[in-house]
């Protein structure tokens, strides 16, 4: 594949053309934060964002997703993908999307996710800014982002655009692209390493060391009890996580009371009822009743349980959980480094 260059002054025209070809989901400002949203105009685009509140997985795995609709005893599948462009996804978030792609395809393919994913062209972006809690430089270093169709990197005069798939190449038809010079490529690669070095937090051990030590810490009650003392079981750390994909399934009737929908909604293993089953008159059995158990389960999932399936940890170091946690106890760097030193 060849490398392209887009002048800063041509960015808006490029994005405008993309918007006219398909819905474009891209980072925009919301108060003092950023979110991915359907772009109405290129003026809203904020490629200088540091982090978004929710990760871009919502573009194919929305917080509430209808799986099927029903009318009396007849069910209709709700899989109806829309062709769309997910624009400006930071490279650590691409890694997370790669993980979800694998997890939703593995064992039993879930087309409710996969169809939306397949209909999405992803333009990745080398971060231009780093959030206050990011540690993506030091986590899962051997795993590289893979599922994007193109990668854009901001350099002084504009953007180096590296298509990785035919869809990615096709996007260059929508803008005034030139061939990137070797000087521009060098500058892009320098930008990539410079921004990575700016991650304010850092894991100090290898994936393997962390996985082994974390797993071995399971019965260290003191660690998990102390770490979760201020936990609200609010599930924020799960909900904002780009690699979390747990969900609940519920049914709801429409106003006519005969038709309705079965839908899934993001669930959070930190919340009290996540592993609870009803025993009827005998009450209930909660397989993770204590908040320390739930707190530990999330960390195990991030640092060790899924590693063999994913080839690395189920964490990309975005720092959303650390930032979103009101009592500030969810930071994987602090938790892991604490376990490693124990």
């Amino acid at each position: 594949m060849s490398y392209f260059f887009l002048k800063e002054s041509d960015l808006k025209d490029f994005v405008r053309k993309l918007i006219s070809s398909a819905p474009v989901i891209a980072p925009v400002a919301r108060k003092n934060k950023f979110v991915f949203a359907d772009l109405e105009s290129p003026d809203e685009l904020r490629l200088d964002y540091d982090i978004t509140i929710l990760p871009p997985k919502k573009a194919f795995f929305p917080p509430n997703q209808t799986l099927l609709s029903f009318k009396e005893n007849k069910a209709t599948s709700a899989i109806r993908p829309r062709e769309q462009i997910l624009f400006g996804v930071h490279t650590y978030d691409v890694k997370a999307i790669d993980m979800l792609d694998l997890l939703f395809a593995e064992n039993n393919a879930d087309n409710n996710y996969l169809a939306n994913r397949k209909a999405t062209t992803i333009v990745a972006m080398t971060p231009q800014a780093v959030s206050g809690r990011a540690f993506w430089e030091s986590v899962g270093k051997t795993v590289q982002p893979n599922g994007h169709d193109a990668l854009m990197t901001k350099i002084r005069e504009g953007y180096v655009f590296e298509p990785r798939t035919p869809q990615g190449t096709r996007l260059t038809k929508s803008g005034i692209f030139s061939q990137a010079s070797s000087g521009q490529l060098d500058e892009a690669s320098k930008c990539q390493s410079e921004i990575a070095a700016k991650c304010p937090e850092k894991l100090s051990h290898s994936t393997r060391e962390i996985s082994d030590k974390m797993r071995a810490s399971f019965n260290n009650e003191k660690i998990w009890h102390t770490a979760s003392l201020d936990c609200f079981s609010c599930g924020t750390c799960n909900i904002v996580c780009p690699t979390c994909y747990c969900f609940d399934v519920q049914d709801q009737w429409n106003l006519d009371q005969v038709s309705g929908a079965r839908y899934r909604t993001w669930d959070a293993c930190l919340t009290e009822d996540f592993a609870k089953i009803s025993l009827g008159p005998a009450g209930a059995e909660n397989f993770r009743e204590e908040r320390a158990e739930r707190f530990r389960h999330r960390m195990m999932r991030k640092a060790t349980y899924l590693n063999s399936r994913l080839g690395g940890p189920a964490c990309v170091g975005c720092g959303r959980c650390s930032e979103g946690c009101v009592p500030d106890i969810a930071d994987p760097v602090k938790i892991i480094n604490n376990v490693m030193e124990s």
């Binding site: 919301r30 978004t52 929710l54 924020t236 909900i239 919340t271 009822d273």
Partner: peptide, 29 residues
């Protein structure tokens, strides 16, 4: 089906900026 999780879940799902990130308080937790 009435949720037994805090309001935080719903704020996050609709990407409301957290009151605590705006220097405010909140009982949603």
């Amino acid at each position: 089906v009435i949720p037994n999780h805090p309001v935080c879940v719903e704020c996050k799902k609709r990407e409301t900026v957290c009151r605590y990130h705006l220097g405010d308080h909140c009982m949603g937790v």
